[in-house]
Design a protein around this nucleic acid. Structure first.
Lengths: 159, 159
DNA sequence: GGCTTTCCCATGATATCCCATTGTATCCCG
DNA sequence: CGGGATACAATGGGATATCATGGGAAAGCC
C-alpha cells in the first residue's frame, strides 16, 4: 500500500470529487467504500487522506507513543490532558464513496483548501494530501530545491 | 467504531438535540436507540457521550484496573471504599433517542454546559464530547498550539 | 388544567443513486 | 501489426432519499 502520483481532479458544482482509481486501488480490499479526510495538524490549507485502517493505526501509534502502555484508561477518563489522537479525530471525517469512486467534499474541507473547481491529490506514500492546485505548484517548486540540496548532501562513499 | 469530526447542533426551544448521523452510525448496530451521557470526571462544563456498550466497557476496565481481579466482589459489599466506576455512573444518564435521532437534553447537562441554542459535538475516537460552542473554540485553539508543538518535538532524523 | 414530554408531519438543504457521455487504454483476431 | 471492439476512468446531470430542523397535535403528570 503506497499512494503515489499527483492528480488534478474536478470539484463539480454539486461539490463532488473523484478519488482517482490509482488511490482507490490502494485502499484495503475489504474496506473500499470509505476513507478518512482530516485537517493537517500543522499546515493550514492542507487536508490529509488515508484509509480508515491507516488512520486508525496512526492514532494508535500516536497514543502508544504519547501515553505509554497504560495510556488507554487514562485517555478515556482524563479530559484535561492533551490527547493528540483526540485532536486529530476531531478534525477528521469518515467519507463514504459512491460505487463509482466519487464523494461529496464536506464544506469545511472546501473552505480549508480554498478550492473552487479543482483539487490536487498528491500521493505521500502511506497517506495522500489534498491541495489547492496553485498552492501545490508553489509548494512543489520549493520542495524541488530542498530535494536537490538533500541529494547533494548525501555525501556518498565517493570523494 | 471511532467518533470523528466536530459538528454544531441546534438546541431547540423544546430542549431537543440531534445526535448527528455521523455519530449515530458509530453506535453498535444492535443498540441504536439509546446512548449514555456523563459529566467529565475532571473538566467542568464538559459532557461526555458514548454508546451504552462503550460506557459499560470503560467502567469495567476502570474497576479491573483500580481494584484488581477481586474488585467486583469488594465493590459490591464495601460502601466505604471509593469506587471510581460508581462515581461516574452517578453522573451518567441513559438517553433514549427518537427514531429520527433526536433526544431531549436533560436540564442538568444544559446547565453544566451553559448552552442556550447550540451544542458542539466533538468526536474523540472512542467517545464524544459536548461543549459550549464558544468554549470549544477556545479549547480548540489551545490544542492546536499543543498539537503543533507535539509534531515539532517528534524529533525526526533532521539535525 | 396548565406544563412538559413524546409522536408525527413538514420543509429546505444536502447527499446519494442512477444513467449518460466522452476520451483513453486495453484486448482480440486474423 | 493494424483496426476496430471493448472496458474502464473521469465527468455531467436529473431524480430520489436522507439529514437537520421547526412546529403542531396527542399523551402523560402533578
Amino acid at each position: 500500500m503506497a499512494f503515489r502520483s499527483e492528480i488534478l481532479i474536478k470539484l463539480d458544482k454539486k461539490g463532488r470529487v473523484l478519488l482517482p482509481a490509482a488511490f482507490r486501488d490502494e485502499l484495503p480490499a475489504d474496506d473500499r467504500g470509505a476513507f478518512v479526510l482530516y485537517h493537517s495538524p500543522n499546515v493550514s490549507g492542507v487536508v490529509n487522506g488515508n484509509s480508515r485502517m491507516g488512520f486508525d493505526a496512526m492514532l494508535e501509534r500516536l497514543r502508544a507513543e504519547a501515553l505509554g502502555p497504560k495510556g488507554s484508561l487514562k485517555v478515556a477518563l482524563d479530559d484535561e490532558a492533551f490527547d493528540p489522537a483526540g485532536y486529530l479525530s476531531a478534525g477528521a471525517r469518515t467519507i463514504a464513496m459512491e460505487p463509482d469512486g466519487r464523494f461529496s467534499m464536506p464544506a469545511e474541507f472546501v473552505e480549508a483548501l480554498d478550492v473552487a473547481d479543482g483539487v490536487m491529490l498528491v500521493g505521500k506514500v502511506e497517506k495522500f494530501q489534498l491541495w489547492n492546485p496553485a498552492r501545490w505548484q508553489a509548494r512543489r517548486a520549493a520542495e524541488r530545491e530542498k530535494m536537490a540540496a538533500f541529494v547533494r548532501n548525501l555525501s556518498g562513499g565517493e570523494a
